Structures are given as C-alpha cells and as structure tokens.
Simulated scan of single mutants.
Amino acid sequence: MIERIIDKRTHDLGGGFEVGRVLPFHARRTVGPYIFFDHMGPADLAPGFPREMDVRPHPHIGISTVTYLYDGALTHRDSLGVTQDIRPGEVNWMVTGSGITHSERFDHAREHGAHMHGIQAWVALPTEHEEADPAFYHHEGSADLPTWEEKGLRGRLIAGSAEGMRSAVKVHSPQFYMHWDMDAGASRTLPAEYEERAVYVAAGVAEIAGQVLRTGQMAVFDPGRDVPVTAREAATIMVLGGDPIGERFMLWNFVSSSKDRIEQAKEDWKQGRMKLPDADGEEFTPFPEDRDYAR
C-alpha cells in the first residue's frame, strides 16, 4: 500500500531560514502535479532579526506556487504589482506561467516576533498551460476553502476537488490538497480517488496504512486502495495528489517540460530581462551558478 516513505532534508534558503525539503526526491519527483514541497519551520523569530533571512526577489516559470501557514505571517510582493500578507488558514496561489518574480518577506515577524510554521508547494502546470499569463490569487474563509469537522478531526480543502468538495482556488489539472488537524486517536480514510496520493506529517505522529510516521515524513501510496490514517498523538496532516503531469525538468526555480525553455529563462534572469516587484526591486537573488538540474 505504501510505495515509499520520504524524510524531509534540511535546506537553507540562503539567509539562515531553514526548511525541510520533501519533494522533489531522487526516487519520487512528483505526486500528481505536486513537484515541490517545503516544510517551513517551525521556527521562533525574535523581533528585529536580520532582513537577510527574507526570501529576496526571485523568478519562476511553469508552475503554480501555493503558500499555506499554520502560524506566523508572510508578505508577498510580485512583478504584477501585488502586495499581499498571508496568515494562518489562508492561501496565496501564484500562477507563474510564462514568468513572474516575487519576494517573501517576514515584515510582521521582524516587527513583532513570530512562531513561523507552514508549507510551500509547487504545482506543475500542464504542457498547454505552461506559458499562461502569470496571475496571483489570495483565498481565505470557508466560502473559498471548504472546511468540515468530524469526530476528532478538523479539515480544510486547500485546492482542487475531493470527496464531493471543491476549492475556489483555480487549478489547471485534476488534483487535491488538504489539511487535517487530528486529535490523538482520531482516524480517517483517504479514498482511492486519484492515481497518485501522499500524506505528510507536519506535526505529531500518525499510523498510516499500518506504519508509524513521525513529523517530517511523507508516505506515497500505490494507486487503487483506500488508506487508513490514525493519529497516534495530536497531529497535523497534509494530504495531496492528483493525476500524473508527465515529465518535468527543474533547474533552481524554473520548471518546464522543455530544457530549452529553462535555459532561456535562466538567461533572461541573468541578463536582467525579468521585471522585479514594483515594491521590492532594490535587491534580487542571483542565479546560483553551481546549480544543476534536479534529479
């Protein structure tokens, strides 16, 4: 039932803020269209911490990025002119398409201090949408993000459709992305609704398909069978998947079905041909010359 278990690997975003990288993994690049999955924190940030910890302006192509927080706050600024704070339970969904640049700043945490904890995922766009116009969407509340409660569990559908529910987030391929908060002893079944599915334990301990997973572990499942999930202790669970998206190449922040398109984007960034955010154009992240295609 469990195809593979993936442990998060520590990765520094460049200014001292560390994340746990789960996808891509050398033996499992994607789960449905989800090609990237970073666990941010948990980290306690004291007021006045250095600005170098922020994620400076950087480019993307070929994906949608989805930022989701359990605690803390982030400020998003992009080359479309959008400035948007995100807080727990909300969703920032950015369609990068043919190209966009953005930054992620800890403005609120730097002023007030914060307990930062969340997930950032990337969703690969289907080939026919890889060059779509970039766009940004902010979603909050149960009108956009269906929520429900059952015995010992509080759930939210972040994106896509599942179990008769549909999120208002605009997706480009069949997929689902859910957040479950489970009390100790609570149980739930993940139905065999999509070909590719995974469960990530963001906090706590869970028994999944008969195997115990702890914080920072993702289980990827074989298709065609329902998966039982039980919280051994109070747990925060992320559930994701969808239809396979096909082969994708990744170099730094660029994702595409074509290496030639990635090389073009790389040169565009290096030569300064990609517009920086209007409200955050004083600095940027240089292309890391030692970076190779992700395997």
Score class of each variant (00 low, 15 high):
E233T: 14
F249E: 01
M218V: 12
Q211I: 03
F221W: 09
G241S: 11
Q211N: 06
V212Q: 11
F249P: 00
R214G: 12
E233I: 02
T236M: 08
G242E: 02
R225L: 07
P244Y: 04
P223T: 08
M250Y: 00
E247N: 04
M238N: 03
F249R: 08
Q217M: 03
R214N: 11
M250P: 03
V229D: 05
W252E: 11
G210H: 09
A231N: 12
P223D: 12
V227C: 08
Q211S: 11
G241I: 10
T215A: 11
I237Y: 05
A219D: 03
V229Y: 03
D243F: 01
P223S: 13
R248A: 01
G246S: 06
G210K: 06
L251W: 08
A235P: 12
T230V: 10
A219H: 03
P244H: 04
A219P: 12
G241Q: 08
G241T: 10
I245Q: 11
M218H: 01
I245L: 13
G246R: 08
L251E: 07
M250S: 14
A234N: 14
A231Y: 05
T236E: 13
Q211P: 00
M238V: 15
L251M: 06
G241L: 04
V227T: 14
P223H: 13
A219Q: 02
G210C: 09
P244W: 05
T236L: 12
R225C: 08
T215E: 15
T236D: 07
R225G: 06
I237V: 15
T230S: 13
V227Y: 03
P228K: 06
E247V: 03
D222C: 04
E247Q: 12
G242F: 07
L213H: 10
G242H: 06
F221E: 02
A209M: 07
F249Y: 15
L240M: 14
T230A: 13
E247H: 14
V227E: 05
A209R: 08
P244V: 03
G224V: 08
M218I: 02
